[in-house]
Amino acid sequence: MKYRIKTWGPGLLLLSPSIVLIGIFVYGMIGATVNVSLTDRHSAQPAENYVGVDNYTDLASDDRFIHSLQNLLILTVVFVVGTLVMGVLWAFLLEKGVTAEGFFRSTYLFPMAVSFVASGVVWRWLLNSAEGENAGGLNALFGMIGLDFLQNPWWSHPDWGMAAMALPAIWQLSGYVMALFLAGFRGVPNELREAARMDGASEFKLYRHVIFPQLSPVALSALIIIGHMSMKMFDLIMAVSGAQYLTEVPAVYMWQTLLANDYAKAAAIAVVLLVVVAVLVVPYLISNARAERQR
């Protein structure tokens, strides 16, 4: 198709306000953050000198930052695995159509409409670390129903606390993964199922060899969406535990650093976080655009 500027020019013009806004507020601001991260602005005063990548090398040897990355890793693994398992299970249970499907679906999905700050209020109560006689929250519930052995200090555990921090996140986003997979299951053509059944495939084999392989693109999207959400996790942690060392992730550390007016270090943490997310998301965006062009 031949493009003529008279034809497409107005379109570009109509889009230009948004191009300018995104250009300044996304790319300009990222540039400015990178710029700050290369200076010695460690107080509210303006920067005096460029210090190269010093702030980044400092981070690499900052135990607190390493600790926040370890926390992020545990959180992300548990969060991603948890939502995928629950989401796939729910979608699988609903997939063939059940009575009151709409009710089940809406119930599983509703936590998504609530803010992490609001759900954090109740999860803070549920994840009470006291055990035994003084148990509260979920630990008290376990005590009541005779599952005392399940009692644990939740996010207060020094090594695996972040795994407990993933629980509210799993509660909140499993419904989302379910919705993705439900759409995926239903995208598998009925003829394919019928053909497999005709060939005498058992239900197990049907899922194992016919349906699940068709769902790998859905699984990839879910993985990337949930994974990048986890890397940005801030609200939930602030609401459940507040800003504290035990549950610190880079997003929270950056906020704490900024509160202390260490602009350059805060900027460097933000840039590291951005790069980590970009490594995950950019290939996804590109492959998505390619797939679209081929359609």
């Binding site: 379109g11 889009l15 602009y263 976080l273 965006l285 590109i286």
Partner: peptide
């Protein structure tokens, strides 16, 4: 147009901490 769209999309996935200080 596709490139512009992709550049827009990236803006929705970034951790907003990366723009907060200059913002």
């Amino acid at each position: 147009a596709d490139l512009v769209f992709m550049l827009f999309l990236f803006g929705m996935f970034i951790p907003y901490q990366a723009v907060m200080i200059p913002l």
